[in-house]
Amino acid sequence: MTTTALEQELKEMIIETLELEDVTPEDIDPNEPLFVEGLGLDSIDALELGLALQKRYGITLESEAESSRQHFANLKSLAALVESRRQQ
């Protein structure tokens, strides 16, 4: 499965925003979990990522909402979120 331009953009944003040493875009599997397992991000990263989405795409998420958890599940779901909010 090929990586879309948006997925590539999000990968680069994640690496830059979260200062991921030694991680390349190829290391991030779009279907693998971003948090705890998979990439291994933590709760501070979630807040940082939320901030980056707000700055770059104007997307505001509710931190307590179950939907936010789903959006942050993996890179694919994150890309779907950005795509849907862009079309609104």
Binding site: L18, I44, L47, E48, L51, K55
Partner: peptide, 9 residues
């Protein structure tokens, strides 16, 4: 600008 949580921490 909003505060960076990681930087604040």
């Amino acid at each position: 600008d909003p505060l960076s949580p990681a930087r604040f921490g």
